[in-house]
Computed example of a mutant assay.
Amino acid sequence: MWGRVSCRCRLLCGGTWPGTGVRARSETQKSETWYQIYLKGAKKKGDLHKQLFPGMLKPETLHHEELAEMMKTAVLYHNGPLVALNKPQGLAVTGKPGELTLLSVLPEVGQHLGFRQELQIVRAPGKESSGLVLLSSSPQLTKTFQNFFIHSRRAQKPTVTYWAVTVGVPDTTKGEIQVSLKLDHVRGMDPVVPVKAPSRQALREGVKKTLTHFFVEDSTCDSALIKLQPLTAFPSQLLVHMVLQLCPVLGDHVYSGRVGSVLGESFLLPLETAIPQTQVLNDLLLHRLQITSNEVALLPLHLHLHQILLPQTSVAPTVLIAPLPPFFSQTLWNLGLQMSGKPRNN
């Protein structure tokens, strides 16, 4: 069963991306990934956004039918009632009625795969993150997975792994980030903010204790590739946790403004003065990313749900993996960062 997943994962990595070690599919094959389809449109229209960051998706430029066709090619695994797909960055999983989301095209994806029952979302990353989405047409299987995730969380055993590229390098190569978080209401926005020593009353009223394990996979003088394993679930948890390490995720245009710098030394700005803004990058980092300061606002969030652990069942392997988006792999190449066992860019 695992062989089916590995084979399919390789097939979805169309194109050889520098520094990834991923082999390209034959150009003669008829099947294409969603980002190959999208890039064809980019070349025809001359869209700068798509050319700068290959594999970027702008849902607002698509019709419902176009997105449905692309998501059919995003399927990584299908066995019985279980489906896993690789969600592009920038695509919301759910939304208001009438909005173009992953949920809005699931009926077409399910029909394409031969489902009669409706596909339900079991696990998925947020809109600005890419990566694995776990779907099920069986309420019983969904409950089995959810119970497994709950029990693993209580036992502090991580079940999901994210890859992130950060601006800055943590002081230690691995560690834990423990902090209480809450949703605040500031200037008409709902940012996530840390709470020091929350009271029992605060914990009952929306403040949540959060925990993330992190491991520095590789680093340069001003950037890092980091493996993140959250053991709790809270909106924007990973973004805020990395900001608290003074290493915001690349492409974070919401929380990175909380990190200031003087003479090369980073520090946290007071929350009341830090507002969401386009991420600020130094000239050296811009040069290595091969973008200008005017193009930073187009920079996608480099946070990818790479792996999910599952309980032993008859319909799934115990590990599902989603390949990195093309723009993420290109960034690793540009910055000289590598994953374990991959050739380094010299």
Rank of each mutant, 00 (worst) to 15 (best):
S138K: 07
S138V: 14
S138E: 15
S138P: 06
P139W: 07
P139I: 14
P139C: 14
Q140K: 08
L141H: 11
T142R: 07
K143M: 10
F145S: 01
F145K: 06
N147Q: 05
F149V: 12
I150A: 10
I150V: 12
H151A: 14
S152I: 05
S152C: 12
R153W: 05
R153H: 00
A155D: 10
Q156M: 11
Q156T: 06
K157I: 06
T159H: 03
Y162H: 15
W163M: 05
W163Q: 10
A164L: 08
A164R: 09
V165K: 15
V165F: 07
V165R: 09
T166F: 01
T166A: 11
V167K: 08
V167G: 07
V169S: 13
V169M: 15
P170C: 03
T172M: 14
T172N: 13
T173S: 15
K174Y: 14
K174H: 13
G175V: 11
E176R: 03
E176W: 05
E176G: 01
I177R: 07
Q178N: 15
V179N: 11
S180Q: 09
L181G: 07
L181N: 04
K182M: 15
L183F: 06
D184A: 14
D184L: 15
D184P: 12
D184I: 11
D184F: 15
H185A: 10
H185E: 15
V186I: 14
R187W: 11
P191E: 10
V192H: 04
V192T: 06
V192D: 04
V193A: 15
P194C: 07
P194M: 11
V195Q: 12
A197Q: 12
R200Q: 06
A202F: 00
R204N: 10
E205Y: 04
E205R: 11
V207C: 09
V207I: 03
V207E: 08
T210Y: 03
T212G: 03
F214R: 01
F214I: 06
F215G: 00
V216R: 08
V216A: 13
E217V: 10
E217G: 02
D218T: 02
D222E: 12
S223F: 05
A224D: 11
K227N: 03
K227M: 05
L228M: 02
L231D: 00
T232S: 02
T232Y: 01
A233C: 08
P235T: 04
L238E: 05
V240P: 12
M242E: 07
L244E: 03
L244F: 13
L244A: 07
L246H: 07
C247I: 00
P248W: 04
P248L: 11
P248V: 04
V249C: 01
L250M: 02
G251C: 03
G251D: 03
D252P: 00
V254R: 00
G257Q: 10
G257I: 08
R258I: 02
G260I: 04
V262A: 13
V262Y: 14
E265I: 13
S266Q: 12
